[in-house]
């Protein structure tokens, strides 16, 4: 099937100040039409002010098999979180 359009991942920035967020995917023959299709498919209800599209085949993802090696070590670094440090009730604004 030569006429199937490639798949694109769509990222939408919902309002000024927030980061682009993955909205979904769609098919388009090239980047230009992918942006326009994204506008028509994913911002029908005023969802966005900016669109990124990336060819799905260009996305490099971490492997699920590496999940433990990649993410478990962070679990033990509890001191990175502010709640790790109890503050006396008398101390304010910290």
């Amino acid at each position: 099937m030569t006429s199937e359009w490639p798949l694109w991942e769509v990222f939408i920035r919902s309002q000024h100040g927030l980061a682009h967020k993955h909205a979904g995917s769609l098919h388009a023959p090239d980047a230009e039409m992918a942006v326009r299709n994204a506008r028509d498919v994913y911002t029908r209800r005023n969802e966005g002010v900016s669109i990124w599209v990336v060819r799905s085949s260009d996305v490099v993802a971490s492997s699920p098999g590496d999940r433990e090696a990649l993410f478990d070590p962070a679990q033990s670094k509890v001191y990175r979180h502010p709640t790790f440090f109890p503050m006396p009730d008398e101390v304010k604004h910290i």
Binding site: T2, S3, E4, W5, P29, D30, M33
Partner: peptide, 16 residues
């Protein structure tokens, strides 16, 4: 729609 989809792919290839 087949010829439309085909044409869009062909055009994208030409552009690239």
């Amino acid at each position: 729609g087949e010829w439309v989809r085909e044409a869009a792919v062909a055009h994208a290839r030409k552009r690239a």
